[in-house]
Each structure stands twice: as structure tokens, then as C-alpha cells.
């Protein structure tokens, strides 16, 4: 039933797809999402309602519609961009809307006294964000950002919709060629687990380290 030779054969093939696509998309996508999410969260607090409200609609719309749909729309709309780049951009933007919510609750959790003390010291708004609010808010937000990055990682198989050869696609191809899917899929599952679990542990460690 389970062919351990096939298993060992699948390993390097899938590992390559894992590193080249899954990992690259997740790392770059997470960075994009973390930066954009912060921009959205600050913009929603600082911009006048005339701009802030439409921005909120757009973000809500993105967050509440499925990722594969976004992937397909952008894939067909921008055929000149490589599918992998489309994947990074779309996944990054999609997850930035979730991360924006995490940042927002992190920012909201800062007591008003912190803002007031900054005002009483005449700190400029930008300095208040940078030196007072964000260091505290991001510390509160980090665990949640880590969870979104892991969720993103698990969403990378959606790249199959836009023909990016990510790991699960590679496992399917490998399985088809060898008339047995279980070995390659097991490898894929293990690789996901091997990457997610240490990340989760790392996030917890980081969280503890950041506590003051």
C-alpha cells in the first residue's frame, strides 16, 4: 500500500516546490501583508471619514470575499505579470486586510492615557505613533500576525487556481506520474506541519521575549 521508496523519491521533488513557491510566497506575502496591514490600520485612524470610510469598504470587501476569486481575477486581468508574482501580491493584499484588523485591536488596546500623555508633552503625532503607540500595539499584535502568516501558508495550495506549481500541485503531478498519490501527499502534509509547528513555537517565544 504505502511505498516507502516512492516516499523518499517524492521528498526532494516536493521540497524544491516547497522552498521555491510555498515558502517564497508565504514569506514575501507575509511581509507585504504586515506592512500594508499596518498602513491600513493607521490610515483608518488618521484619515478623515471622507477617505477613511471608502477605504474601510474596500478592505471589508476584500476580507469577505474568497481568496481563489481574487487570484483568478487578477491572474486574468494582468496576464503580463508572472503567476507567482500575482500570487504574492494577491495573497499579501488579501491577508493585509486581516492583519489590519489585528493591528487595529492592538492599537485600540492602548489606553487613552498614553495618547494624552503624548499630547501633554507636545509630541508630534508622527512621533507619538512611532515611539509610543506602535511599539506597544505591535507587541500586542504580534501573536495574531504570526497566526495569520501560518494561515496564509496553509492557503498557498489555492495557487493551483492560477497554475503556480506550488507543493500540492507538485505532489499531484508526482502522484499521477507514479500511479500512487498517498506518498507524495504525505510528504506535502509533513512539510506543512514541519514548517507551521516551529513557526508557532517561535511566535510564542517571541511573544514572551517582548513582554516587559
Amino acid at each position: 500500500m504505502f511505498d516507502s521508496e516512492l516516499f523518499l523519491e517524492a521528498l526532494p521533488v516536493l521540497l524544491k516546490a516547497f522552498v521555491e513557491v510555498t515558502l517564497v510566497v508565504t514569506v514575501l506575502g507575509s511581509l507585504l501583508a504586515a506592512v500594508l496591514g499596518l498602513v491600513w490600520a493607521i490610515a483608518l485612524r488618521e484619515l478623515p471619514a471622507a477617505i477613511g470610510r471608502p477605504l474601510r469598504w474596500v478592505l471589508d470587501f476584500i476580507r469577505m470575499t474568497p481568496l481563489p476569486v481574487h487570484l483568478l481575477v487578477v491572474y486574468y486581468a494582468f496576464t503580463q505579470i508572472s503567476p507567482k508574482t500575482v500570487g504574492i501580491l494577491v495573497i499579501g493584499i488579501h491577508y493585509s486586510t486581516y492583519m489590519a484588523e489585528s493591528y487595529r485591536s492592538g492599537i485600540d488596546s492602548i489606553r487613552s492615557g498614553q495618547w494624552e500623555a503624548a499630547t501633554a508633552l507636545s509630541l508630534p503625532r508622527s512621533r507619538t505613533w512611532r515611539a509610543v503607540i506602535l511599539p506597544q500595539a505591535i507587541r500586542n499584535t504580534l501573536p495574531s500576525l504570526g497566526n495569520w502568516a501560518i494561515a496564509m501558508f496553509k492557503d498557498t495550495p489555492f495557487l493551483i487556481f492560477i497554475s503556480v506549481p506550488e507543493m500540492v500541485t507538485a505532489a499531484r503531478v508526482f502522484g499521477g506520474r507514479n500511479f500512487s498519490y498517498i506518498e507524495a501527499m504525505t510528504v506535502a502534509g509533513l512539510l506543512f506541519l514541519l514548517a507551521s509547528y516551529p513557526t508557532a513555537v517561535l511566535m510564542q517565544k517571541l511573544e514572551k521575549k517582548l513582554a516587559y
Binding site: G113, E116, L121, L123, P124, R127, A131, Y212
Partner: peptide
């Protein structure tokens, strides 16, 4: 309302430096 992310010294020097 001290800033918990800064040392005592940084709490005091923050505004003199940046304002």
C-alpha cells in the same frame, strides 16, 4: 501614564529631544 515601552530615562528625555 508613563510610557511602559521606555525606560525611566527615555520617558523623561523623549519630549525634550523630539519637541
Amino acid at each position: 501614564n508613563l510610557f511602559p515601552n521606555m525606560s525611566v530615562l527615555d520617558n523623561i528625555t523623549e519630549a525634550p529631544i523630539h519637541v
